[in-house]
């Protein structure tokens, strides 16, 4: 560092280069962190591998950029400036389900969309987690009586955390995500293997009046989803 480049503060001390300033005085203090002090003389940690993996999973989650309805606006606000979900290690949203760990379901699910959402969920690599955001994904919310509305996300995919509200505030969503992280880190939220609702092939459906009626319109190879509205909660 050449001397004519040095500037002085009002106290007269010389300001060094950024790197030097960061290093501080004495021996390179980056390596003398409080964590290091806590370890004492042995710089090793012993932990269970599973626990370590859970901690890693919970600390770095990739969210899926997935907007459905009103809640997605509050979800964007949660990602954006001011609330900034990234502070909690819950990442920038990924546009592709193949890169995502967590899907936030932000809005009303209707009959036409449910199979598509199921498909997006199936494309995510395991382990995967689901945060359902808003009343619509819990029960259908204000639209529960609608002829076309699926009564909650859990009719289609398994859900780890429900965040109630219409819509939930960004703070509530952050709390939900933080809770999910906590559960994952504690090993309470296992990677999903149970899928309560499968897409069916049309040919596999029970032969009833409706299926007979549609038989010549739908290819047997087509994947279908069947809604029994009267059985829905």
């Amino acid at each position: 560092m050449s001397s004519d480049n040095t500037r002085t503060t009002k106290h007269g001390a010389e300001i060094e280069s950024t790197q030097e300033a960061r290093l501080g005085e004495g021996v390179d203090s980056r390596f003398n962190s409080t964590l290091r002090e806590a370890f004492g003389s042995t710089p090793f940690i012993l932990t269970k591998f599973d626990q370590f993996m859970n901690w890693v999973r919970g600390s770095s989650m990739f969210m899926l950029q997935f907007g459905i309805a009103c809640c997605s606006i509050e979800m964007i606000h949660t990602y954006a400036i001011k609330h900034d979900l990234d502070r909690f290690g819950a990442g920038v949203p990924r546009a592709s389900p193949r890169q995502a760990d967590v899907i936030i379901v932000p809005g009303t699910i209707v009959s036409k969309f449910a199979p598509r959402m199921k498909r997006v969920y199936d494309q995510m690599p395991e382990p995967k987690f689901v945060v359902s955001m808003g009343s619509c994904t819990i029960s259908g919310g204000p639209f529960q009586e609608g002829y076309n509305v699926v009564k909650g996300a859990e009719e289609v995919i398994p859900v780890d955390i429900h965040v109630p509200g219409c819509p939930p505030r960004p703070e509530a969503l952050i709390y939900g995500v933080a809770k999910l992280q906590e559960r994952i880190a504690n090993g309470e939220s296992a990677p999903v293997t149970v899928k309560p609702y499968e897409l069916e092939q049309f040919g596999d459906l029970e032969q009833d009046e409706l299926v007979d009626k549609l038989a010549d319109q739908i290819d047997e190879e087509d994947l279908v989803m069947r809604y029994n509205w009267s059985d829905s909660p």
Binding site: L210, V211, I218, D219, D222, Y227
Partner: peptide, 13 residues
């Protein structure tokens, strides 16, 4: 004459 109770089948083509 619509009854909301009828089952529905939705395809994913």
């Amino acid at each position: 004459d619509f009854s909301g109770e009828e089952p529905q089948v939705v395809t994913l083509r």
